[in-house]
Structure formats: structure tokens, C-alpha cells
Amino acid sequence: MGNMKLTLKIWRQADAKAKGAMVDYQVSDISEDMSFLEMLDVLNDRLVREGQEPIAFDHDCREGICGACSLFIDGRPHGPSRHITTCQLHMRKFKDGDVIHVEPWRAGAFPVIKDLVVDRGAFDRIQAAGGFVSVNTMGNLVDANAQPIPKLDSDKAFDAAACIGCGACVAACPNSSAMLFVAAKVSQYALLPQGRPEAKTRALNMVEQMDTEGFGNCTNIGACEIECPKDISLENIARLNREYLGAELSKE
């Protein structure tokens, strides 16, 4: 067992309609080898034993790839470290006696469901609006190697495709803009020959859905790039700006 003592200030909200508030909790015996979520497990275990309601938070793979975990920790999405998700954040980043604020992602397009759990369905709807290549399942497609793709393009497409859809970009952005998320998807396909035929409609449709969902407008502040656990670059937003401009000017 460890020996860190911490004060947690955690957002509690019974359901979507309830008015929430920050509530203080003390935790002790926290080991520096624990992940942040394991620290919350310890707190929840105690709350259940004490007959209180445990804190609801989204999490699943706990290895930084599913994108389920969120949490605005100590004033930043996914906490103080760069390029990791909350589940990868370990308590050795904190000191004994620290006061840590824990809040849900804040955005009108991500309504709170309960405590620290928010609804990120908007991302799915944006994806459904155009985040795909229209190819049906078929066993007789052309051979995968029939069309070579320059390594640089393929690598850049991968960089964009690394997005885990966690929503940290929205949470970090003072405007609650989802541009980095949308740009990553648009970029991945825009960079690959397979995605080119639908590039214009994709950019137009995904942006339209993004706006419909009520996300804010991108003003190039750049907080998203810094807080993105997968290091998605602002270059992708510039690419979306280009793609969309071209699509808007040439649409019939």
C-alpha cells in the first residue's frame, strides 16, 4: 500500500436533469503505482462500503486506446501529462497532500449523463455523416497491393487515424470545437487514394453534422493539439480547411 493522502474535488450529478456540484473527498493510502482510475476505484470501494453512491465514470480498456475514459483532471483533459489518457495517468505524477479537481468534459454537445459520464454520441453521428469509404464487403476486390501508396502519405494517414474519439479536443477547446476530431477523420481518408472519390462530400457532410451538433467554432487556439492523447496535429485542421474550401467552392 502507498501512503499518499489527497483531497479530491469531484463533480457529482445524479442524472442529466439534476443540478450538479463539486463535492470534496479525502483519500489516503494511495500508491504511486496506481493509475488515476485505480485511485478512483479505491474511493468507490470505500463509498460503497459506507453506503454511499460510488462515482460514475466512463472507462473500459484501461490501456489508452478505447477512448472511453475522459475526466478533466486538475484543470486539464486527461490530467497533467501529455500524450496519455486518464487510464494511463499514474499517481506518481501527484504529490502527497495535493488537491485535485475532477470534472466531466464540458460542452453543450456532450451533455452529462451522470457524475463524470458524458454522452459523446455526437461523434458517432458525425462519423455516420461521412467518416467512411463507401465500399461494400466483397471477396473479389482488387489485390491490396495493386495500388502502391507513398509511405509518407500512408504514415500521415495513420497519424490522423490514431484518433481514439475520446473528446479531449472538445474538452480542452475554449470554444468546445470538435474540429480536431473531424479533421483527423477527414485527413485520414483525404490522404489515401481510396478516400479521394468521396473527399468533397465527406468534408461537407461531416462539417455540417459537426455544426448541427452544437460544437463551437475553431479559432485556431491550439489547445486541442496539446491535449490530444494521440498527438493529432493541427496540420489536419488545416487540411480540413483546404478540403472544405475546395469542396464548398466547387460544389454544384
Partner: peptide
């Protein structure tokens, strides 16, 4: 073949092949 057609960015060599 299916995944490449969907735009899955598999690793490639410098010749652009998988």
C-alpha cells in the same frame, strides 16, 4: 483487400507496398 479498400492505413515500405 477489404480493409485496404476501406482506408485502413497498414504499414507500408518505401515502395508503397504493404
Amino acid at each position: 483487400d477489404q480493409c485496404v479498400a476501406q482506408g485502413v492505413p497498414f504499414a507500408r515500405d518505401y515502395g508503397g507496398l504493404l
